Amino acid sequence: MSTNGSQRIEVLVPMRWGDMDAYGHINNVQIVRMLEEARIAAFGPPRGAGAPGIDPHVSLFNDVPEGTMALVVDHKIRYVRTLEYRNVPAVVQVWIGAVKGASFDIHYLIQDPVTLEDCVRASSHLAFVDEATGRVQRLTPEQKERLAPFTA
C-alpha cells in the first residue's frame, strides 16, 4: 500500500478465479467485495472484527469507541469498462470525498493491473452509528483530522 502525490491510498486487491463471470471479467457483485477489501486495507477493519492484522494506512474504523459501528449507507458504482480477470491483483486507489458532520464519502478507482486503464469508479457513503441506540454519531475532530490529508 502506498500514497501517491494526490493523497490517494493505493491498495492491491487480488482477483480470484471464482470472481470471474461467464464472460471472463470480474462479476459486479465481486466488485463490491473488492471495494470493501480496499476500504479495510486503507482505513482498518471495524472494531472487534477478528484479530489484528496488518496496520491500515489510516487507522480510522478500528479506533472508534466501543459500541460504535461503521456502516455503509450507500454505494455508487460506475463500470467504465470491464475488469478482465488477471492472475495479479487489481490496483485500487482510495481517497476521501465529502466529510460532513456525521458522515463521509470514500471514493475508489479500480484499474486494470496490466493496462492501468480505469475500469470502475465508485463511492461509499459511511456513517458511525451507536450500536445500542441506532443513532448516527457525529465525527469527532480527531476523526476529521485523520481524514483530512486524503480528502479531495
Rank of each mutant, 00 (worst) to 15 (best):
S59P: 07
P52R: 11
A70G: 09
P65G: 07
P56M: 06
P56A: 04
D63H: 07
H57W: 05
N87S: 12
I77R: 11
D74Y: 03
R86I: 04
L83D: 08
R81T: 12
H75Q: 08
I77H: 07
A70M: 09
P89Q: 00
M69Y: 12
V94F: 01
D55S: 14
V88R: 13
V94N: 07
L83R: 08
Y79V: 05
V73D: 03
D55T: 12
H75C: 02
S59A: 15
A90N: 09
L60Q: 06
R78A: 02
P89A: 00
V72Q: 05
T68C: 12
V64H: 03
V73L: 13
P52S: 07
R81A: 11
P89D: 00
A51R: 14
E66C: 03
R86K: 14
N62M: 09
S59Q: 13
W95Q: 11
D74V: 00
R81L: 01
V91K: 14
L71R: 08
I77A: 01
V64G: 02
R86G: 04
D63C: 08
G67K: 12
I54E: 15
A51M: 10
P65E: 14
I54C: 02
H57M: 12
L60S: 06
E66L: 13
I96M: 04
A70W: 03
Y85W: 13
D55K: 13
Y79P: 09
T82K: 12
N62T: 07
L71A: 09
S59M: 06
D74A: 09
D74S: 10
T68G: 04
V88P: 03
L83E: 06
E66A: 11
M69I: 10
T68Q: 10
V64S: 03
A51E: 15
V92E: 07
H75V: 02
K76E: 12
T82C: 03
I54K: 14
I54A: 13
R81K: 15
N87I: 02
V72H: 04
V72G: 00
H75T: 07
V91P: 05
E84Y: 01
M69E: 13
I77C: 02
W95H: 14
A51D: 14
Q93E: 15
D55G: 08
V94L: 02
V92Q: 10
Y85A: 03
V88F: 00
V92S: 05
M69K: 08
V94M: 04
Y79W: 10
